[in-house]
Structure formats: C-alpha cells, structure tokens
Amino acid sequence: MVSYFVTSTGTDIGKTYVTAGVLRAARRSGKLASAVKPLLTGYSPDHAAASDSAILLAAMGKAVSRQNIETISPWRFAAPLSPDMAAAREGRRVDFSLLTKFCQVAIGAAPGTLLIEGVGGVAVPLDETHLVSDWISALRIPAILVAGTYLGTISHTINAVDFLAMRGITAAAVVLSESENPAASLEETAATLRRFVKPPIHMIPRNLNEQPFQDLAGSLLELTYAGPS
C-alpha cells in the first residue's frame, strides 16, 4: 500500500487541513488510512487540543490524549519556528536518523495508507544539514504538495514542484487549498499551474464541503507507486 509525505509551499498553507480531510474521507469510504506528524513546532501542552496532532487524531477517530499526541508527534517544540531553530531554543536538536527510522517503522506498521505530515515547506531546515526534502528523499515515498491561492502562489508552487523533482521526489498531486483571501479563484489558479507543472491538481474550497476530500482520497488511495522515476 502506498504512503505519502504531505508537504507544502510554505507555512500555514493547509497541510493539516488537507491531511485531516483525506483521513475523514477514507474512514467514510471504509479505506484504511492513518497519519503521523513526527515534528511539531509551536506546541503548547496547555493548548494541546488545538494542535495539528489533535486535529489528525480526531480525523482518525482517535482520542485526543497526551499519550496519543506523543505517539504520532514524538518531536514537539514550543517555539513556532523551523525545527532546527525551535530545537536550539530548548538546547535540543532533531536527530535525522531517528526521525527517518520512526517514519520507516510507522510505514511498515500501518495497515493501510500512511500520511506523514511534514513541517513548514519543502526546504525548511530540520537540523544543521538536512531539509524537509532530504527527509522525503530518505523515505522514498511520493509527496503531496499543498499550495494556496494567495498572491504569489503560482511562483511558489512551480518552484516547489521543480525543487522536489531535482531531489528525485515524485509529486503525486498538487492540492490547492483555497486561501482565506485568495488573489484568484481556485479554477483560475489551477488552469495556470496546469500549463507549467505535471502532477495532477486538486482543488479544495473553504466551504467545508467534504466532497472534494472524497474525490482527492479516492484518487490518492487507489494509486500504486512504482518508486522514484
């Protein structure tokens, strides 16, 4: 069963929103899907119920408990910064080997599709030498690239798709998660991007309609991944 790494063109674009939507759709369709978010920055135990990890747990139908948050997000940092900086604030660092091993074990143990939600965008630093793209490459799984519809997103998305390709990472899909104040419509943005990027483009509006997630899940969970091209 194929697993995916959910990444994005930047921070606060909609990775968790999209990942949770796919998980809900999978449950409704009777498909096996789960998620982990190994690295979490900007985390406060006092507001754990509002964290990205809590949102994913709820989408999986699991209890939002401290233990479950720790299980899917073993690396948690308080500062809302890139992992290397957030860890340094606490006198810690992200061990890339352990991070990769955690994900490999999770992929092997998942009964169905596993969604691994990253942190920030494709080029966010994890430690002194590794970026999010290195993390994806090490896992040898395809990426789902989440983008927005804000002004500048077309350039950001094209650059991100090209950056992933240069690292040997297949983008299985580009998911346009409609921004709060869009510069253009989903349809306009998708039409322009289709002229410049190869991955299929899916559109997720901000109207809390579950059907687009159902369509996205149906596409992703039926794919068979043959490995890096």
Rank of each mutant, 00 (worst) to 15 (best):
A184N: 06
A160D: 10
A183V: 06
E178W: 08
E180C: 10
A173P: 03
I169S: 07
S133C: 11
E178N: 04
L139N: 03
W135A: 01
L151F: 10
A171Q: 10
A143L: 05
V161S: 03
I141K: 01
L139D: 05
A171N: 01
I136G: 07
E180W: 13
V146C: 04
E128D: 00
E128A: 15
F163Q: 05
V132C: 04
G152W: 07
S185W: 04
V132Y: 01
P182H: 12
L186T: 07
P142F: 14
S177H: 15
H156C: 02
I158N: 07
E187R: 09
E188G: 13
S179Q: 04
P142I: 00
H156Q: 09
L176Q: 06
L176D: 05
V146Y: 05
T153L: 04
A183D: 08
A184G: 11
L145I: 14
A171I: 04
L145Q: 03
A160T: 11
V146F: 08
L145D: 00
S137M: 09
T129D: 06
H130A: 05
I136A: 09
A172M: 15
I144W: 01
W135Y: 13
Y150W: 15
E187V: 08
T149M: 02
F163R: 06
E128P: 01
T157E: 03
E188K: 15
A172W: 10
S137H: 07
L145H: 10
S185T: 15
W135V: 00
I144S: 05
E178F: 11
D127I: 03
A165I: 06
A172F: 07
G168I: 11
A143D: 01
H130K: 03
H130G: 07
P182G: 14
A143F: 08
E178H: 11
M166W: 13
S185I: 09
A138V: 03
W135H: 06
D127M: 07
A160M: 00
P142T: 02
G152E: 00
A143N: 02
S137N: 09
L164D: 03
E187I: 11
V174R: 15
S177C: 13
S179F: 08
L164R: 13
G148D: 00
I141L: 15
L164Y: 10
H130Y: 04
R140E: 11
V175H: 08
P182C: 11
M166R: 15
A184H: 12
L176E: 02
T157Y: 11
I136E: 00
Y150N: 05
I144G: 05
D162K: 14
E188D: 15
S179N: 10
T129L: 09
V161T: 04
S155L: 10
T129K: 12
T157I: 15
A165W: 10
N159G: 09
I154K: 08
I144K: 11
A160C: 11
N159I: 12
F163M: 02
T153V: 14
R140N: 13
L131Y: 13
A172P: 02
